[in-house]
Amino acid sequence: MSQELSLAAVELRGVTVRYRDTVALSGLNLSVARGRTVALLGPSGSGKSTALKVIAGFEQPAAGQVLLAGKDVTALAPAKRGVGVVVQSYALFPHLSIQQNVAFGLKGRGLSRQQLRERVAEALAVVHMEKYTKRYPAELSGGQQQRIAIARALAIKPPVLLLDEPLSALDAQLRQQMLAELQELRRELPDTAMIYVTHDQQEALALADDIAVMREARLVDMDVTERLYHQPPSGFTASFLGGANLLSAVVESFKPTDDGVCTVRIAGRQFRFRAPFEAAIGERVSVAIRPYACQLAESIEGENVFPVIVHSVQWRGASYRLIVRLTETAEQLSVDLPATVLPPEVASTISLRVRREDAVLVPAEVAVR
Results as ranks from 00 to 15, higher is better:
D258F: 06
S26Q: 09
V10P: 01
V66F: 12
R353F: 07
D258Y: 02
V264N: 13
V224H: 03
H95K: 09
L219R: 00
T16V: 15
P78S: 08
V85L: 06
S234H: 09
D223K: 00
V261I: 15
P43V: 04
E11T: 08
P137G: 07
A75I: 11
C294L: 10
A39G: 01
V54N: 00
E365N: 07
V335Q: 00
R218A: 09
S248W: 00
Q146A: 11
Y19E: 08
L352E: 05
A155Y: 13
V220W: 03
V368W: 04
L124Y: 11
E4P: 02
L337H: 10
S44R: 10
A293M: 08
F58C: 14
P158M: 13
E59H: 09
P307Y: 12
A172Y: 03
Q183D: 05
L5T: 12
L189W: 15
A125L: 00
V38Y: 03
K80A: 13
F306E: 05
L228E: 05
M222I: 12
M222Q: 11
R218K: 12
R135H: 11
G282A: 06
A339E: 15
L96K: 13
Q115I: 06
Y196T: 09
V10C: 06
P338Y: 12
E365I: 08
F273Q: 08
L140V: 11
G282S: 10
A275H: 04
A364H: 14
L205P: 06
R356M: 10
E139I: 01
D258E: 06
Q176S: 11
T263E: 12
I323Q: 15
F58D: 11
E216S: 05
P363A: 09
A297S: 03
E216L: 02
R290W: 03
D209Y: 01
A249T: 03
